[in-house]
Design a protein around this nucleic acid. Structure first.
Length: 201
DNA sequence: TCCGTGATGCACT
DNA sequence: GTGCATCACGGAC
């Protein structure tokens, strides 16, 4: 059920960003299990990607996680408020990552409703990377965890989306990345209400 | 629309 | 070592 670490060693981060759509992201925090279907991702393509924290091969205490082998979580704080969850992919010293931007709640709805203080029927409960992470109880204590462990992992439930139902568009909030800001490296499920705005290209 | 909130990274001593 | 601009966002107006 759990995706093996070998799944994440694929060196094509654009492929994995799309393949992770439909996979189910689980967390177990204080014995409470919650999970959601991944419906929106963004690819961050290593040292040549100006939007990546590892652009130009930058290594700092924070970005060190990105240089791990594939199948490790990368969680960091953004704007002082939001915890953002990424999946590190590829091999050692190749800092590729996929940002999970939205999930569709699947398991542990009432726990997620308490964490977010809103009903799961509202799309905002897990639309957007900060909200999705909060619904799943993810914070920086889950940084640099193997994704086949007991705290956070991803399963394949056989959910498949046809190419027609996957939309590619520019990534959100990366205007600083100049020409790389226009690359169509954001992927989401057409029509899914939990996809963050803007949910068109 | 506007702005909170805090870690981070880098330019400086 | 210290200061400060910057930031993969979201929610209250």
């Amino acid at each position: 059920m759990k995706l093996p670490l070998s799944y994440y060693s694929n060196q094509d981060v654009l492929f994995l960003a799309q393949d992770l759509l439909g996979k189910v992201l689980f967390t177990k925090i204080n014995d409470e299990i919650t999970a959601g279907i991944i419906v929106e991702t963004e690819a961050y393509n290593g040292i040549s990607d100006k939007a990546s924290h590892a652009y130009g091969g930058r290594r700092t205490d924070r970005t060190e996680t990105l240089y791990s082998h594939g199948g490790v979580s990368y969680v960091y704080l953004c704007y002082g408020i939001h915890h953002l969850f990424n999946v590190v992919t590829s091999v050692d010293d190749e800092p590729h990552a996929v940002l999970v931007r939205a999930i569709e709640p699947l398991i542990g709805m009432e726990i997620m409703e308490l964490r977010r203080n809103m009903p799961a029927s509202k799309a905002a409960i897990s639309a957007g990377p900060g909200s999705a992470a909060k619904a799943l109880g993810i914070d920086r204590s889950l940084n640099k965890k193997d994704l086949n462990g007991s705290e956070i992992w991803i399963e394949d439930h056989g959910i498949q989306y046809s190419a027609d139902n996957i939309v590619a568009g520019p990534r959100i909030g990366v205007a600083y990345a100049q020409e790389d800001a226009l690359l169509p490296w954001r992927f989401f499920i057409k029509g899914n209400k939990y996809v963050s705005k803007p949910n068109t290209i």
